[in-house]
Design a binder for these strands. Structure first.
Lengths: 220, 220
DNA sequence: CCGTATAAATATGTTGACAATATTGTACGC
DNA sequence: GCGTACAATATTGTCAACATATTTATACGG
């Protein structure tokens, strides 16, 4: 699991901080003080600063010269914007997956789908966030487009997870998500790239609409 | 033009190096030596290292622990992958622009279009790269989606420019590009988001096909 | 002559200290 | 009592030096 390569403090600190920010353990708006972090990680400020620069480019913290960096606070409006990008990118991923996934990979995806279906009919519960991510992750990987994979997995998904950790209620019902996943799987099995893209886009657009409608709800 | 904010060595070095890499002045594959860069920028290695970390996250250089960083070399296959992402993102940008651009902004875009048309009928020349970028840039900004704008302008476009600087021949004929731009403008004027997205996607997909067919050509 | 093993040299990773800027606290005047 | 000006403190930005790992050079053996 944990690859011991990149054995450098900067990378380890970056990952630790990133995870802390994404999971909400470091509250949004918190100022990341270099001396405190250096104390916390038992290191000097050098690697801390480099890690912070990485987080800055990733968009997880905002940096102001001579003032410091603060963890970003995602407004629901911003999440809607992010979901527009997610719709476009994952839609493309689904289209490419319909073309480029191997039969074995599709079979694997089908198996995962079956597990989810069983789980739901047994418990009737909302789909677990991890399960949903697994499904999407396999499709993204199936696109075989390394640049797309990087954009989605290394950049965008941290923000999506950051949002989900704070408001788990927005995962729409497992029953609906399950149907959407089944439709998507079908399209990929048919090697229908256009249908796959459309299904994925609708799946994500619906989640986005849930968020957008919640914003309107709060305004009244 | 040059905002004097962010007056910190790291940001200035980052921008300078980024521009050098994008313009091809720093040859792909070149190793970025920290001591040499420190000498070159008349500074210490601290800011250099931070700048390099930024370039690494941006994807312009590849870092191997304890070895150093090298400027990435874009293969045409990778550019095709990038253009798939570009198609998805800019397609979405066009759709959002059709919804969110103000009438004044559309008028401004129409004016730019007219200038390009005049220029072409006068010179008959291929469209200038800058002109093409201007057009796309205005549409991206018109999406009003800050996250999308950031993804396209701060990340993806550096790679696109990097590719174009080395192989300008891939800009397809101005006559075709002009028609595609006109169709796109029309769709935006009609506030037809679906058509705008489709036109933008075809426009970029055609450019991608040019690159892909060139790869096949080289194989024979 | 080629390959391996060892040693020198160079580069990266990390540290602590100094300089410049911003924040906090305090006193003064209105 | 409130706002402003100044001083003290703390933090960020930068630098030079040390520690560790890799690359290059050299010498030895086959």
């Amino acid at each position: 699991m944990s690859e011991k390569k990149d054995q450098t403090l900067t990378t380890k600190i970056t990952k630790t901080l990133r995870e802390g920010i994404v999971r909400g353990e470091i509250i949004p708006g918190t100022k990341l003080s270099e001396p405190k972090l250096a104390e916390q990680f038992q290191t000097s400020r050098g690697p801390i600063r480099e890690a912070i620069r990485c987080l800055e480019v990733m968009g997880l913290v905002k940096h102001v010269a001579h003032e410091g960096v603060r963890v970003i606070t995602l407004t629901q409006e911003q999440v809607v914007e992010i979901y527009h990008v997610r719709e476009a990118l994952e839609g493309k991923a689904a289209a490419l997956a319909a073309i480029n996934m191997t039969d074995d990979e599709i079979e694997d995806l089908s198996l995962l789908m079956h597990v989810h279906r069983e789980h739901q009919s047994n418990t009737g519960a909302y789909m677990q966030s991890d399960g949903d991510f697994d499904f999407h992750y396999k499709i993204i990987q199936g696109s075989k487009n390394r640049f797309l994979i990087r954009q989605l997995c290394e950049d965008l998904y941290h923000l999506v997870r950051m949002f989900r950790y704070r408001s788990a209620r927005f995962e729409h019902r497992a029953s609906l998500a399950l149907i959407e996943h089944e439709q998507l799987l079908f399209a990929i099995q048919q090697r229908d790239e256009q249908l796959a893209e459309m299904m994925m886009r609708r799946h994500i657009a619906r989640a986005r609409d849930d968020i957008a409608s919640n914003i309107r709800e709060l305004r009244s």
